[in-house]
Nucleic acid binder design. Sequence first.
DNA 1: GGACTAAGTTCAAGCATTGAACGAATGAGG
DNA 2: CCTCATTCGTTCAATGCTTGAACTTAGTCC
Lengths: 379, 379
Amino acid sequence: MTTVDHLRQVRLGNLRTVLLALVDRPGSRADLAARTGLTKATLSNLTEPLLANGILVEDPATGAGMGRPSKPLRFHPDGPVAVGAEVNVSHLAVEILGLDGETLRRHIVPADIRKSSADEVLDRVSDLIREHAGPRTLLGAGLAVPGVVHDGVLVRAPNLPNLVGVPLAQRLGERLGIEVELDNEANLAALAHLWPRHLAGEDFVHVSADVGIGAGVVLHGEVYRGTSGFAGELGHVVIEREGEPCTCGSRGCVERYAGLDVILREAGRRRLDSLQKALGAGDARAVGAVRQAGQALGVGLATLMNLFDVPTVVLGGSYAVLHEHLSEAILSEMDTRVLAGGERHTHLVPSPLGEFAVVRGAAGLVTRRAVHQPERLVG
Amino acid sequence: MTTVDHLRQVRLGNLRTVLLALVDRPGSRADLAARTGLTKATLSNLTEPLLANGILVEDPATGAGMGRPSKPLRFHPDGPVAVGAEVNVSHLAVEILGLDGETLRRHIVPADIRKSSADEVLDRVSDLIREHAGPRTLLGAGLAVPGVVHDGVLVRAPNLPNLVGVPLAQRLGERLGIEVELDNEANLAALAHLWPRHLAGEDFVHVSADVGIGAGVVLHGEVYRGTSGFAGELGHVVIEREGEPCTCGSRGCVERYAGLDVILREAGRRRLDSLQKALGAGDARAVGAVRQAGQALGVGLATLMNLFDVPTVVLGGSYAVLHEHLSEAILSEMDTRVLAGGERHTHLVPSPLGEFAVVRGAAGLVTRRAVHQPERLVG
DNA sequence: GGACTAAGTTCAAGCATTGAACGAATGAGG
DNA sequence: CCTCATTCGTTCAATGCTTGAACTTAGTCC
């Protein structure tokens, strides 16, 4: 740690606050100075290299009002972008995200990859990315998978056995020539609600169901992953100690009562859209199946709330689609089971992000890192 | 944020690393420089005001080896100290803790305060503190209570209704003329295993049972309290959705199966030491009661591990006493129910701190803050 | 056109750390 | 006893980033 390093840290920290302010919204140097608490002088100084490097652009002066007109700064429309990619049991998806938080392109393709080898899957993903990325500089890529991730490797994925143990981040990185970060789809769906826009506060849990049930936990504005990447495994929270046996070896896991497969089976439907239609028509069996799942999920969520104590639960994925028919049962269980005292209450909200939450989070992983560690942008 | 502030932050940060190194063990300026990565010059500079303020002392030179002998620095033996206090249903306790992590005095007195008013309790506590504190400067006090705390107020405490809603931190602070911080006993027992000595790593859960079951959760070297102070309410994790009704309004809470009162009742004993004796004698009813509690606790802990993913569980309080007869059942449930993958395994260890864990944590709250925010020590 | 206002730039001052040079205190060896 | 080697601790000029004030620029208002 030389003295230079210390001062550099201060500078990088200030650079970060400036970039964060710009992610929030564009602004002139004077405006940014006011918003960040830094001085105009520092802002001129900090933004100069960002403009030189093509990260930011200066818009033409806007003369609204008295005094010298300001020249707003914003992220350069042709600046570097981030890639998000998702590998799932039944589909692949990509999203291209700018540093300003705007989605440039996104795409989902159905794909049954259960029987594909890891290399086949990675080839398809990298083709998909190249197709959509275009000529712009890539900051890096985030890759979402349905399973537990540790150190860039998928260590547990009951539905994608062919990908387990493969260094997916490294392999995809080699194909694309950029850095790739691997993470769990539940964590990334949660991140998408935190970055680049705060859609659910700084502390919340995002719950979604596909094959399993996954919760992405956000504490103090950071995705919480646990020591081994297993955090937030809501699907295997026990609600009946002698209940239905689960594939995980336990019994009475939430997943056995509130998993999407269970809901569909109980409702006598094969696909989510068919279930949705039935619910719309007031089909009693469908409504009952969803309500029962809601009860089980509510018990699991009550346990989760008693342990994490976060103010908000976001329902994502299939749960977002079903939320109108789920919420009542969930809330009813939570009301009776979550410890109360003082004026505590839980918000239960559906995700506004739809089916692109996961890829958006994957891309957000990259833009977030770029803003939080701006040394890469100016170096 | 003036420029001075920025540089001051750097200085305070370095001061903190130096103090942390000194909490670990005493050392000369040269030794501390090597351990912290700072230069000898900086160390002379940083420690000068600490010596002047009587926070540190310079020991006489120790001439072991060649070269100029070093003069080790350590916390001044007559320097300021922290107070820890505990108010519980059946006892009061205090501990006086030095900045070096040494316990100077500690004391527990039996007391049935269930019917006492808040003022009566606070009077007794402040008398007890004054009796043990002696003439030394007090950095502040930590106050532990069995219940949920928010903003210095006890908001939920089924066993101490007279204290609920009272601004305990403020009231005790007025009596003693120092700053008092209020916290939950579970959090503080956990803190005692983190500070001033790392007894269980940087990520762990401390579980103990008295009247209820409380878990103190430590994530990334910080006690995690949640948004409203409700985090870690393991006692009200559900293990049987239609199980025994609980006072909290829910059903099938862990507390109904693994609480100390339940264990004693099932074992046909009135007090912990009597149960202990029965266990030692191999009393089948006692052994069975403890094993059953262990199973229930294991299910709850498995759920907790699937959500928090920490590598270590510390059994404290009564559970530490019973751990020999509890561990097997707990581990057996956890083995089958905690998601595994890769080389993940959980350590289950009894607390080494005995009945003083809570007060020690309460005092540690204060010394920890003093070291982490050293501006108070030099100002 | 002149007064006014606000944006952006320039520049000396301030400050914590650094690294090198220096002084201090001891052991080893002759 | 004296000198050298060794290590500890202090002194001091240099570094580099932010700051605040002064200054320049570019508009509006009357």
